[in-house]
């Protein structure tokens, strides 16, 4: 791949040295390859990370009930407790 070896000689991360097509990240000098366990470890809480996915699943389920009811009755009811 021409892309992978395009620029020679740059000492710091300049985005031109690729591990694989589309994967050209390198740590800057003095910074870790992996942040886990380093002083830059974000220490994400898995419960917090899961919140968006759960919220979307719940919205999709409510929307599916609304549109199914709409197709059946021809009337839109937003409040799913009334469907």
């Amino acid at each position: 791949m021409a892309l992978a070896f395009a620029a020679g000689g740059a000492l710091a991360y300049d985005g031109t040295k690729c591990k694989a097509p589309g994967n050209c990240w390198e740590p800057k000098p003095g910074y870790p390859e992996k942040v886990k366990g380093s002083k830059y470890d974000p220490k994400h809480d898995p419960k917090e990370l899961a919140k968006q996915g759960n919220s979307i699943k719940e919205m999709e389920a409510r929307n599916a009930k609304r549109s199914a009811n709409f197709k059946k009755t021809g009337k839109w009811v937003y409040d799913v407790s009334k469907i």
């Binding site: 021409a2 892309l3 740059a10 000492l11 710091a12 300049d14 985005g15 031109t16």
Partner: peptide, 9 residues
């Protein structure tokens, strides 16, 4: 040629 802008560290 490869189609990439080169970063300035």
């Amino acid at each position: 040629r490869p189609g990439i802008p080169v970063r300035n560290p």
